[in-house]
Computed example of a mutant assay.
Amino acid sequence: MTEATYPARHQLIEFLETHKEEIENEWAETPVFASRDRETAKEEAAALLTGLQRVVQDGAEEDSSAEGFTTARTVLGTLAARSAGGPSGSTLPDVSVLKEPVLRLWKQQDLSDDVTHYGAMVLATAISTLRHVLLEMELSLGADTILAQQEQLAELSTPVVKIWEGVLAIPLIGTLDSMRSQTATESLLEEIAKQQAKVAILDITGVTAVDTLVAQHLLKTAMAARLMGAECVISGIRPQIAQTMVQLGISLGEVVTRSSFADAFAYALRKLGFEVVHAGEVR
């Protein structure tokens, strides 16, 4: 802040304090707060004005991370949540309507043109930054929501199923990326520990392609399961995928493989000491 602008800013700070109640009353009547009862609307308007005063005092009207805007974030979050559920379907309250009342009151002051113009610019900038803060909050919330949905989808797309006492299966479908691979491994290992499983079947019938990274993931999962006392069986390797793996020089080492899930399940039962026979053969 330069020496030339300091007196003007000082007058602006005094104005916000002196006319605090007037501004709060006029703000409470705007659509931003109008859906609340009068007392609550005034309290929210007061909280927002307090943050704005701090911003003006600190000369930080363009900095959305300033302490004053941080103070205002709580009430902004409340306003945004209420607006999102409103009949208009908008996701953000239109805080730009707060400019008119405060600028009108400011311009009614008996001040020089330079001070009036400077103060109006500061106030308009501060309220515009409120809008930016709201957008940042919405983007952050949107990113968190997308991440949560991705995690939920990953969990849903990698279910661990108990198909027999001591036998677990995890059907993998589609493309395996790093997040799904990690989720699948963690889910499988947790269930192996929880159910004391002896055999875990990784069925890749629905996997569209297997490359080196996917093969490494399968091997790591099998090794981790073995360390926990369970044998991992990979089933559903289709001819095209088998050919691709051979061309890439990918080897699953000592991991047991079966052409179908049924074959893998039969292997698991034999591993546990059961024998599968046709009902007609039982006497």
Rank of each mutant, 00 (worst) to 15 (best):
L272C: 13
D37L: 11
E39Q: 01
Q57A: 09
S88H: 00
E254P: 09
S96F: 01
A72Q: 07
L16P: 02
M228K: 06
R226Q: 11
L218D: 13
L218I: 15
R283F: 05
D263N: 14
V102K: 00
G280S: 15
E17S: 08
A80G: 06
A224D: 05
D113V: 12
A8H: 15
V167M: 08
D110P: 06
T50F: 02
L79Y: 06
V133Y: 00
A72W: 06
G229T: 13
I163T: 14
R82A: 09
E22D: 04
D177Y: 04
E61T: 04
L103C: 07
A193E: 12
L269F: 10
L189A: 10
L134I: 05
S259V: 14
F33L: 10
T205V: 12
L98S: 01
I250E: 09
L168G: 03
A46W: 06
S140E: 10
K20N: 12
P101H: 00
H117R: 15
L213M: 14
A126I: 11
K99W: 02
A222W: 05
D37Q: 10
F261W: 07
L49A: 08
A84P: 10
T91C: 02
I234L: 13
T71E: 14
V95F: 00
L76T: 06
H278L: 14
H10S: 13
Q182T: 06
G68K: 06
E62W: 01
E24L: 10
D211V: 11
T18G: 02
G280M: 12
S251Q: 13
D211K: 10
S65W: 02
P93T: 06
K107Q: 13
I127F: 11
A279N: 09
T50L: 08
A268Y: 07
G59R: 00
K99V: 03
K42I: 12
K99G: 04
M1H: 02
S88V: 03
L98N: 01
N25C: 01
E3I: 13
I204W: 05
E151F: 01
H278F: 04
R36P: 02
A242L: 12
V56Y: 07
V95N: 03
A197Y: 11
A222D: 04
T40N: 09
V256K: 15
R258P: 12
K107G: 11
Q216K: 10
V256T: 15
S90D: 04
R82E: 06
Q152F: 01
L156R: 02
A242E: 07
T208W: 01
A279T: 13
Q57W: 03
Y118Q: 09
K20T: 07
F274Y: 15
V207C: 08
E44N: 14
E62Y: 10
T18M: 09
A46M: 03
T40F: 07
I170V: 15
L141A: 15
S90M: 01
E190P: 05
V133M: 05
E100H: 02
D94V: 02
L227G: 09
M228C: 07
E39T: 07
M137P: 00
D58P: 05
Q216R: 12
D94G: 00
G206F: 06
S187Q: 13
Q149W: 00
I23N: 00
L111A: 12
T212M: 05
S251W: 00
T221H: 08
P93C: 09
M121A: 14
V255R: 07
T74R: 13
Q53C: 14
E61M: 12
L134W: 01
P7M: 07
T221S: 09
S235C: 13
L219I: 15
A197P: 10
E231T: 15
V282D: 08
L52S: 11
L176P: 05
